Simulated scan of single mutants.
Amino acid sequence: MPDITVSHLSHTYHLPDGTVVQALSDLNAHFPAGSFSVVVGPSGCGKTTLLRLLAGLETATGGQIDFGGPRPRTGVMFQAPRLLPWLTVEENVRIWQYGMGGSTALAAQYLHLFGLDSFRKAYPDQLSGGMAQRVALVRTLACQPQLLLLDEPFAALDYFTREKLQDELTEQYVRQPLTIIFITHDLDEALRLGERILVLRRGRQSGLLTRSEPYPRQALADRTREKQTILQLLEEPHET
């Protein structure tokens, strides 16, 4: 898969009351093929809008996204698991195969890989929140995407479950490299996961950090200096 290049990307929302919201404004960004990029910033800075545009769920009002060819096979995971309640865990993981003649072998492989064998026949209402989100991650990976887009997928989970799923995601990334773009507002999560950290502020790129620390990364490593750099990038510029 080629690199992804975002050029002068803008997006405007027109609310029913007439309010105009400029979610992205002349954004330029680069996502190398096979990289794990994290987009970080406060609520309202345009993170989710960027992900939705990359996923093709919305059309930009200005600028362009260049995938270097046809749009890649894309998997998208949201903050809520969005499992279909009338399907079992296995059926939810296989949902992308319906109508495509796919076998159960790949679904079974991923369920085993993520320790979900004993939950194959369970229904979503029988799962904990963390387990449901693990199923959502497996479902997204089982379609074997070239591009994986994740919108704050672990934000609602407790510390221990979040850390476990972060580890499982990076293990999968090391095992089968693909291009990942992960949205978060949590600086610790950004530093633990990202090889490249794109900082957004008011719909524009405020800075970019690169990290070479190998996986798996320790959750409690001292990253004070890097966190301070990101916080400075998010501050309002001083008037002169």
Rank of each mutant, 00 (worst) to 15 (best):
H14N: 08
H14I: 10
L15P: 03
P16K: 00
T19K: 07
T19Q: 07
Q22K: 08
S25F: 02
L27P: 13
F31Q: 07
P32M: 12
A33N: 12
A33C: 15
G34W: 05
G34I: 12
G34Q: 05
G34H: 05
S35F: 07
F36G: 10
V40M: 02
P42S: 14
G46Q: 00
K47C: 14
T48N: 05
L50E: 00
L51K: 02
R52H: 15
T59G: 14
T59D: 08
T59C: 09
G62A: 13
F67N: 04
G68V: 14
G69Q: 02
P70H: 07
T74S: 08
G75S: 09
Q79A: 08
A80M: 04
R82Y: 13
R82K: 06
L84W: 03
L87K: 05
T88M: 04
V89E: 00
E91G: 11
N92F: 07
N92Y: 06
N92W: 03
I95K: 01
W96F: 11
G99V: 12
G101M: 02
G102I: 01
S103M: 04
S103Q: 03
T104D: 14
T104C: 09
A105W: 00
L106R: 15
A108M: 07
H112M: 06
G115R: 01
L116M: 08
D117E: 12
D117L: 05
D117Q: 09
S118H: 12
R120M: 14
R120S: 14
K121E: 11
